[in-house]
Nucleic acid binder design. Structure first.
Lengths: 155, 155
DNA sequence: TGGGTCCTTATGGGATACCATGGGAAAACA
DNA sequence: TGTTTTCCCATGGTATCCCATAAGGACCCA
């Protein structure tokens, strides 16, 4: 059963809402998470989004340290403090919060990028830029050296 | 369903009250704790807050030492002496006690930071500072850690 | 193959509910 | 009796719910 694939660009309306691409909604429905789990990416101007599968990934990371310890607190702030649970309305839309808007530099359009177990939320121009760079790197990796450790589908 | 997530900044009113963010109230309601459990953090200028899940974590800590032992007594004093049970009024507000105010250096605004099983209460400026540091540490911690099966992330 | 119909999807907008906040009055306290 | 706490209500702004519409695609049928 496949996860989030392909990418879509939708418009924000006057209220700051945007339609989540229908194929992504279908994946979320299968996943069973109430609403959407979002977390700002630590290493690029995008927001990771998904359901239980993404949340499990985050939890796994934070469980590596004992609760109430300074390390765990710092990690929890960085992970959960930078997360959100937007609701999805009856028409399949979410509202882009200020946190997401600021982190991703979104103004009037949003690009949703499937990444199998999660998807990312981008400002369209920044995504095009990032994508071109990613393709260059992928090409270099593929042509340059030994088999890529392919434990997932090639994005 | 996930726990305390995201962060919110609210104003104190003239009576020293502040609204607990609605999403946090929803988590507390699910948790079933009457009111709120607060304890000053031992290693930063913040106050830990939550319900039964936080309390259980603290109990687990103190149970690691034999009761009646000097160690246990000292820990109990440190833990429960630094604790409070503020009430939550009908409008979802709590009063910031002097202990919390002093420990966190709060004046007129409060930042609530979700950390999954608990949340923290911060003075906004101090939080921004801590958050920047936490993100650096988290990045280091996560990248040094045993490889999380990163299927797809082109980073 | 061409045309028509139905359904899904993205988007817009009005009405309503919720939430943070302020303040008054009753109650408890000292 | 003065002071603080607790309960209750008011309000402005925002988010949520609900309905409308247009465009595109799938499907069916001739």
């Amino acid at each position: 059963m496949s996860g989030f694939v392909s990418h879509f660009t939708n418009r924000l309306d006057a209220k700051g809402r945007v339609s989540i691409p229908a194929p992504f909604r279908a994946v979320l429905a299968r996943d069973g998470f109430e609403g959407l789990y979002c977390i700002t990416s630590a290493h690029c101007d995008a927001v990771d989004a998904g359901g239980n599968e993404l949340l499990a990934e985050i939890n796994k990371r934070s469980e590596a340290f004992a609760k109430l310890s300074p390390d765990h607190d710092a990690l929890a702030v960085a992970l959960f403090g930078a997360s959100e649970n937007p609701k999805i309305d009856g028409d399949g839309r979410m509202t882009i919060s200020d946190m997401i808007r600021d982190h991703a530099g979104i103004t009037d359009q949003v690009t949703f990028v499937g990444m199998n177990y999660k998807f990312q939320i981008w400002e369209p121009a920044k995504f095009r830029e990032y994508r071109a760079e990613a393709q260059r790197r992928a090409l270099a990796m593929l042509s340059g050296q030994a088999p890529v450790p392919s434990q997932g589908e090639p994005a």
